[in-house]
Amino acid sequence: MNDLLREATEFICSCYNELHKTKQETEIRLNEIHEQIGARGYYKHTTEELEYGAKAAWRNSNRCIGRLFWDQLNVIDQRHLKTEEEMAEALFEHIAYATNNGRIRPTITVLSQKSPNQNVRIWNHQLIRYAGYKTAEGVIGDSTSIAFTEECIKLGWEPRYGYFDILPIIIQLNDNPPKLFDIPDHLPLEVSIRHPHFDWFEDLQLKWYAVPIISEMSLEIGGITYTAAPFNGWYMGTEIGARNFADETRYNVLPRIASLMGLDIKSNQSLWKDRTLLELNTAVLYSFKEAGVSIVDHHTAAQQFKKFEEKELAAGRAVTGDWTWLIPPLSPATTHIFHQTYHNKVEKPNYFYQSKPY
């Protein structure tokens, strides 16, 4: 309880200071929290505190290059929901609101806080994610989804064995059996990947979903934990083009594209991976733009992060960061981030990884 009161006090003082509350308002709120903790062992945030905390958590996310827009996060308070069905509907609403016909809105939906008699978990890594199947002929789909796909099948989901099958959402309330919910077909917006110059690129039949909604992390604000608080920004092109499609342990499409480009894939000196990676990322950016879906290239994202650094320093806040995550996986040395050093100190509020519930 002492730790909770300490974290609550630190959060409220910081929050109310940034929100320009008076000293009297701060003291009154701290007294209320002290009473709540004494009576039931925890306290509840006001809507204003929740909104500030969720935004500050994004601002403190050391691995995120897109933090310039932290104060533009749309916070949807769904803490009052009680059943898995209500929560699933709220997650569907999140997908629709965040997608916004391609003009992606940074959004977080916060479900009930963790307490002695309440714990909500979303089993998915992201609300929208492609299935992965381990077969005798090799992996079909996204290899990072294999274990979760198998759990979905155990719960009654029908596998289709395609390369881009959208998985259902699994929600677990307390120790109850997990419940599975299929995402309505009209909700996920997907972008077919084509190239501005290579007509054959469409024959690869690549596509990716428009909105990355992280759903496995917890949100911690002032000693209170929200175990189900899915959030999203928009994609940086390299996340799809240099990782999801290109990693050998993911879709591994570089050799196929290189062959179609007529490159020598037997020699590293041909730099076939580099040349292929550039064209793949060009295709991703081109396709999203043509489809009217928000996306940012890594050079622009790095420039935006530099502006974030400047604004934070002007506000008297030190910029923390995980350099290994902030540098883009394509041409990192061409960005200022590559030449910087960041203190990887974890500040709260923040988002934290949780152990898998399965």
Rank of each mutant, 00 (worst) to 15 (best):
N2Y: 00
L5T: 10
T9C: 12
E10D: 14
K21C: 03
K23T: 12
K23S: 14
N31W: 02
E32I: 11
I33M: 00
E35L: 11
I37S: 02
A39G: 06
Y42A: 02
Y42N: 04
K44A: 09
T47K: 07
E48L: 09
L50F: 04
E51C: 12
Y52W: 14
A57R: 04
A57K: 04
S61M: 13
N62D: 06
C64R: 11
R67Y: 14
E89Y: 08
A90N: 09
I95E: 04
N101D: 14
K114W: 02
S115M: 08
N119G: 08
L127N: 01
I128F: 02
Y133L: 10
E137N: 06
G138C: 12
V139C: 05
I140A: 04
S143A: 15
E151W: 02
Y163N: 14
L167F: 09
P168W: 07
L173N: 05
L173R: 06
N176M: 11
P177W: 00
D182P: 05
I183P: 00
I183L: 07
D185S: 11
L187G: 05
L189C: 04
I193V: 07
D199R: 07
D199H: 06
D199W: 00
E202D: 11
L206S: 00
A210E: 02
P212K: 01
L219D: 00
E220C: 07
E220I: 04
I221A: 05
I221N: 02
Y226R: 03
G233R: 00
N244D: 07
A246L: 07
A246T: 07
V253P: 03
R256D: 11
M261N: 08
D264F: 03
K266S: 14
L271E: 15
W272C: 07
L285H: 03
Y286W: 08
G292E: 05
S294T: 15
H299C: 13
K307R: 13
E309N: 13
G316V: 10
T320R: 14
W323E: 06
I327A: 06
I327N: 01
I327K: 03
P328M: 11
I337C: 05
I337S: 02
F338L: 09
Q340H: 14
V346R: 11
P349N: 06
F352M: 09
S355N: 15
K356M: 07
